[in-house]
Structure formats: structure tokens, C-alpha cells
Amino acid sequence: FESRHRKDLQLAQRNMEEELTILSKPGNEFLIDANFRKKLRDRLAIIKSRTVFPVGSFRYSDGLSGGGNSAIHARHLEGFRAGQWGLNLWPRSKGQIVYRFEASGGGVFKTAILSSPAIAFDKGKLSNAIEIRTPASKGQKFVSLVSNWDGENKKRDFDVTRTVAGMPWFEVRISAHNQSAITRLSLLSIGVRGEVVEKKD
């Protein structure tokens, strides 16, 4: 779960599937407790999940407790450290995480909403920025959605439909800077929901 290398994750997936197959055979269910099998199934579900969505409604969310699924699902992860309640920043350090959301099978996004990103802000001590880009972005540069947003205490959805409509993918980049002398909890959760449709000729 510390690797984003697809080959390593595929190997882990095969190993877990083989373990579950062995444990499901008659008589083998007593070899190990049911709680272990449940944890194994939960971990397998995480590895098999993707940020790629077929035609229809989609929803993605990660609470990021203990790092959540960030090590697997993030396209880029730098500076942030897994903490009990989310992603932390060490004293006087910066962090950046990038997620790519894709439509599969030649589809495109019709709608997309960034669901109440829970990111901490403390004036003069902890700053942040949320940005987005698509294939249509000029030079594929990230465009600002919001900066220094107190998403830990205020709930707000960001409707990015106008930006992503008709696009086969979009990326969300979240950056933060801890300017204080103590470790700070920075990012607590991320979520996206919307709809993918077939691309019209």
C-alpha cells in the first residue's frame, strides 16, 4: 500500500485473490479467523478500485485516515505524510497531491463536482491551493479553483462541470504549505462525483 507502481499492485492483487481462493475451499475456512478474511477482501477491493469510470454516474471518495488510498490512487504524491486523521505536513514543509480522473471506453465527462474537499487552513501558518486541468487547459497548465480555503470547518462543493464537460480526463492538484514549527494535519478527505457519457461524433 506504499507503492504506486502498477506491476507491484497487480502482483499484490493476484496474491490476495489466490489467498482468498484457498481460504474459500471446504474445510479451509477454519484455518484462519473470519476477521482476517474480511480485511483481505477489503484490501483487495481497494487495490482493484480505480479512478477510471465507465458511462453512467460515478462517485469517488477517500477519507485519507492513515493515508487512506492516496498511495495507490494519486498520480503524484510529494511532501504529505500519512497521519491518523489524514495527510500531515511536517514543520516548515510543502506537500502536493495530484489525482487524475478518467472516462473509460472512449467516454467523456458530462458533469463533475469536487465534493467538499476537507483541507485545513490557518492564516500565516498553513496555506493551501486547489487547482484543476484538462486536455483543453492552455499548455495543460493547472487553473486555480480556490486558495487558502478552510475546508476543515466549512463545507462547499466545487462544480467543475464547465471545465470538464466533453473532456476524457481531468486532474485535481491540491497543494499545501506548513509554515509553522509543528507537524500539522493538512488534508482530511477528497471526493468527486458526476456523470460520464458516450462521446458524440
Rank of each mutant, 00 (worst) to 15 (best):
S3N: 05
S3R: 07
H5K: 11
L9D: 01
Q10S: 13
Q13V: 14
R14F: 07
N15C: 11
N15D: 12
N15F: 08
M16S: 13
E17A: 13
L20S: 11
G27T: 08
E29N: 09
L31Q: 12
I32C: 08
D33F: 07
D33Y: 07
D33G: 11
N35F: 12
F36S: 07
A45Y: 04
I46T: 10
I47H: 01
R50W: 03
R50A: 13
T51P: 00
V52M: 09
G56F: 01
S57I: 03
F58A: 05
F58S: 07
R59D: 06
Y60K: 02
Y60R: 02
S61P: 00
D62E: 09
G66N: 06
G66H: 04
I72S: 03
I72D: 00
H73Q: 07
A74P: 04
H76V: 04
E78N: 14
R81V: 14
R81W: 00
G83H: 05
G83S: 13
Q84K: 12
W85D: 12
K94G: 03
I97P: 02
V98Y: 06
E102N: 08
A103M: 12
G105M: 08
G105K: 02
G106Y: 01
G106T: 11
F109G: 03
I113T: 15
I113F: 07
S116I: 03
S116Y: 05
P117C: 05
A120W: 02
A120S: 15
K123D: 14
A129G: 07
A129D: 00
I132M: 10
T134M: 10
T134Q: 10
G139Q: 06
S144K: 13
S147D: 08
W149H: 11
K155P: 00
F158T: 08
V160Q: 04
R162K: 15
R162C: 04
V164H: 02
P168G: 02
F170A: 05
S175N: 10
N178M: 10
Q179Y: 01
T183E: 11
S189T: 05
I190F: 09
G194Y: 01
E195I: 08
V196D: 01
K199A: 11
K199G: 09
K200R: 14
D201W: 03
